[in-house]
């Protein structure tokens, strides 16, 4: 194992770094996500969620999907995480730690059990599927120009619908959260 590692290291260091460039952020992603899920302090959970979003973005970039990675960072870190944090601050920041813990009571335990059953089933399918054993193909890239062409060509209707959805969500969120006038 160690000798193998050293051999790869000396033979082609760049290749090794390239592989770890995916694995390391993925490990950070899983650890941060796990910590975010079990954390009692909501703010810590939100910050760890932000970290896992960043790690996910780096995984995307490492896999060659630069554009998506940057969009992930921009939207999730810049907007979604901040909106979550903001709503935590707006809803009783003094009772942060009173949230019920994982695995206390029957219903949460059942939830965790369902989640792990799903995980076991998924892992079973993944490791038994012949498709998933495929080796990594040559590095692929998604040039921004091609993505732009696709967005404005084949997928233009989806893009417009997304725009309408976002506008509706913006207006809807503003209306829902608006202070009711007595």
């Amino acid at each position: 194992m160690v000798t193998d590692f050293l051999k790869t290291c000396c033979a082609d260091p760049m290749k090794l770094i390239g592989e770890w460039f995916v694995i390391l952020p993925a490990l950070v992603l899983l650890l941060a996500a796990a910590a975010a899920v079990v954390m009692r302090n909501l703010i810590h959970a939100a910050l760890l969620l932000t970290l896992s979003f960043i790690a996910l973005g780096i995984v995307f970039i490492a896999l060659g999907a630069e554009f998506v990675g940057f969009v992930q960072l921009l939207v999730y870190v810049g907007a979604v995480a901040m909106v979550i944090v903001f709503s935590i601050l707006l809803t009783k920041p003094d009772q942060l730690t009173k949230s019920r813990n994982l695995l206390s009571g029957f219903a949460p335990a059942a939830g965790v059990a369902v989640a792990f059953t799903a995980l076991a089933a998924l892992l079973g399918f993944i490791f038994s599927s012949p498709l998933a054993k495929k080796p990594m193909p040559a590095p692929a890239s998604a040039p921004v120009a091609a993505i732009g062409e696709a967005l404005m060509g084949d997928y233009v209707i989806a893009l417009i619908v997304l725009g309408i959805l976002l506008t509706a969500a913006l207006v809807g969120a503003a209306v829902i959260a608006m202070e009711d006038k007595p």
Binding site: L42, A45, S99, L103, A107, A109, V114, A115, F116
Partner: peptide
């Protein structure tokens, strides 16, 4: 990752944790 998310959504009682 999906299992973590599912566990959080199903077992946490705080609405913000469900969103997370």
């Amino acid at each position: 990752l999906f299992a973590f998310g599912l566990a959080a959504a199903l077992s946490r009682s705080n609405a913000i944790m469900i969103v997370i």
